[in-house]
Structures are given as C-alpha cells and as structure tokens.
Design a binder for these strands. Sequence first.
DNA 1: CTAATGACGACAC
DNA 2: CGTGTCGCCATTA
Length: 109
Amino acid sequence: MSSDFYRNVYRVVAEIPEGKVTTYGAIATCLGVASGARMVGYALNQLIHEKSDEPLPAHRVVNRLGQLTGRAWFPGDTMRERLEQEGVRFTEEYTVDIDKHFWDPGLNI
DNA sequence: CTAATGACGACAC
DNA sequence: CGTGTCGCCATTA
C-alpha cells in the first residue's frame, strides 16, 4: 500500500505553510498527473486511517473553488477553525479565499 | 482481467 | 447561473 504516489502527496501536503492553502489539482499537477486531482483526494482519504505521529495538514487542502470539501472528514468544524486560526480568510462559511491564500507546490517543493 | 469508486475538474445543457 | 455528465488515474473489489 502507500505507493510512491501517496508519499508524494503526503510530502507536498506536509510542506504547505501555515496560513496558506492549496488545491487538489495543484498537487496533482506538481506530481505530474495534472488530471489526477481525484487521486490526491483519494490519497488523503487513505491518510485518515493512517497513523502518524504528526498528522498532515490536510485541512489546508481544498478544491479549486476553495471549498472545504474535506470538512466531513474532520470532527465538527475542526478544519474551518484551524484554517481560520492560521489567518486564512473565508469568503463563505466553508469556503476559503483561495485567491489570496493559494500556495503552489511547484514553486516551493 | 473487468468493473466500480473517489476529500476533483472542466465542459455541456 | 445551477445542475448534470464525462474524463482523469490509481486503488480496491
């Protein structure tokens, strides 16, 4: 399990700076599979049952619209609260200002 | 090996 | 402008 693809996703997600967010598509593109946005989400989905001493900041990964599609995988509003706590602006209750806090992995990884 | 699924994305209607 | 449908690629059944 945990193919290189997964580790790749985990590494990118782990590099997301606080107060910044990125999209599934951006990560996928960074990994080489531009159309593998679904795979990124799938990889993160596996990370739920994956035990880690230091959980990955998956809450900083949103879809291209900035919507917290993964909020359902976090208890309560943990995802929204954490992002808000890091200084991320919200255009809506569950939508971040992706345009101002977008972080491109390709420019930093 | 074939079929189905998925924390998405883009396009069609 | 909101909804629906297909495509994308890896993993699982």
